[in-house]
């Protein structure tokens, strides 16, 4: 494919489980595309050069900076943004834990952090505090001092493990 600089091309992709499409010039960043073309304003834009992590989304399941991708690059890919987290209109367990632990104050960085944490918890179900802090090093939060965020992530990991163990026990009982 070859797109001229002033030409808008159609980008078709999966956004939070639904096939969507929009138009973008080659230079349009994914972060702007999500907000302005898709109306998905949950994704926030901070530094626009990959440092702050506010715009982090999942691309094919991996946490990525939306400001360091072009909209044309997500054609055919699967994206998840913070809008994908809430279940039946309520907060999911991770969001609820952020609320319980005061893991946000102004909330500007939170959308990106939640996406990184979602990927991380799926990949590392039993993290240490060091691992959580290492993952969070890719995000800047100027309000919380991170302690609440770390506590929230560790709690969710523990609770999810308990649930899983419970499930396994039940399955064993059924046998």
């Amino acid at each position: 494919m070859h797109v001229k600089s002033d030409q808008r091309t159609r980008v078709i992709f999966t956004l939070n489980g639904r096939e969507r499409s929009g138009h973008a010039e080659p230079r349009m960043q994914l972060s702007d595309f999500l907000r302005h073309e898709m109306g998905a304003t949950g994704t926030h834009i901070g530094c626009e050069h990959g440092v702050c992590g506010a715009c982090t989304v999942l691309v094919d399941g991996r946490a990525s900076r939306a400001c360091l991708m072009l909209a044309v690059q997500v054609h055919g890919r699967r994206l998840e943004t913070v809008e994908s987290l809430a279940e039946d209109g309520g907060l999911n367990d991770l969001q609820q834990a952020f609320h319980n632990h005061h893991a946000l104050q102004c909330g500007f960085c939170t959308a990106g952090i939640l996406m990184s944490c979602s990927e991380f918890l799926a990949r590392v179900p039993a993290p240490t505090e060091t691992q959580v802090r290492d993952m969070l090093s890719g995000h800047l939060c100027r309000c919380t001092g991170y302690t609440g965020i770390v506590n929230a992530v560790l709690e969710v990991a523990a609770t999810r493990r308990q649930f899983q163990e419970g499930d396994t026990e039940q399955e064993n009982n059924n046998v």
Partner: peptide
Amino acid sequence: MKPAAFDYARP
């Protein structure tokens, strides 16, 4: 903080 315009090719 937006890139200048460019053509885009994806071979």
